[in-house]
Design a protein around this nucleic acid. Structure first.
Lengths: 186, 186
DNA sequence: GTCTATATTTGGATAGAC
DNA sequence: GTCTATCCAAATATAGAC
């Protein structure tokens, strides 16, 4: 798996081949079939690993103390964690969030894990005040947009990532304005 | 070219092959080389066509009257035009804005056209009040983010595109707050 | 578990006849 | 301009020896 990640970071997701992977780990491509039944299984394992890393990274990002004492700061911490996760590994970002690998569909098992991770992310967003569907969708769009522009147009730089805090202030102001206050406690 | 667009919309950008394209236009793959020196030339021509369509579509989107009488409405018109252009043809979006086609790099000539189009877009953004670099970058990130989520997670629907007007209000409020007013006229 | 040998498919591209 | 014939390369995958 480590060799596979190395390779796709060097050559791109679409260029991963059994031959290259075999060479990288010091064997023939055919020998890999003792470990994975197909190339698809390898990609699927990477997909799964990526989502597990995502969940771990995001859940470690904030602690209860910041959440209680500094909700806006907590929101920024979460947002920065998300964008950092995306930009730190563009190929992983492409595999997890863009799905542009020709012909790849995650297995039901991996897909289920991904869905579960999204559920936990939604819970985390709720804790920082991003609750209703439209707010979640806008939050997601803005942060993936920043990550995407950063990766596409200024790889390795910070032209877009440095806008994350500003974007969070913008989003929170918008959410406050657009949330129908029912007068009840949440 | 029309057949090539058809094919990539059906099968994806990466799956475009000379054989398929030949079949679609009623000839052998080899005969296509009378028209294009290579497959790369075809992709490059699509890239160029895409940017020309983009420029035409965006420049037609607003008229001077709306710009003068209703600046916020004009901003929304421009934003909607952009997102509509992106979501109306996901494959073209991928070719023009995502650059994930394995091995494709636009020719200098096509690239120059793309750069020129971006310059004109920046001028258009300036007319609706999006002027300094950070504002342009944030605007771009938010709208590509919406388009991207729409294409990836709700193709054919409107879960994200319906947030465009709200996003523009959000952006304009943010830009007004973050622009250092020098006290001079622009 | 790893190898060699091989099957099979796919796709870009060229040569040369007509 | 279009065809047939062909070359070449890359890639997944299987069979079977060791």
């Amino acid at each position: 798996m480590a060799a596979a990640w190395e390779l796709v970071r060097e050559e791109g997701l679409a260029s991963l081949s059994m031959r290259d992977l075999g060479k990288r780990v010091g064997m023939r491509a055919q020998s890999l079939y003792s470990y994975f039944a197909s190339k698809h299984e390898i990609t699927d394992a990477m997909f799964l690993e990526g989502y597990q890393a995502f969940a771990g990274f995001m859940l470690r990002a904030i602690d209860d103390e910041q959440l209680a004492n500094d909700p806006v700061g907590a929101a920024k911490t979460v947002a920065r964690a998300f964008v950092d996760f995306c930009t730190s590994d563009p190929v992983r970002y492409q595999l997890l969030f863009q799905r542009t690998i020709p012909g790849f569909t995650p297995s039901p098992r991996s897909y289920a894990v991904a869905v579960d991770v999204y559920d936990r992310m939604r819970e985390q967003l709720a804790t920082i005040g991003v609750r209703d569907e439209a707010a979640v969708d806008l939050w997601t769009a803005v942060l993936t947009g920043l990550a995407d522009q950063q990766i596409s147009n200024d790889p390795g730089g910070d032209r877009w990532t440095r806008l994350v805090d500003r974007a969070v202030d913008m989003l929170l102001a918008d959410i406050e304005m657009n949330t129908q206050d029912t007068g009840e406690k949440a």
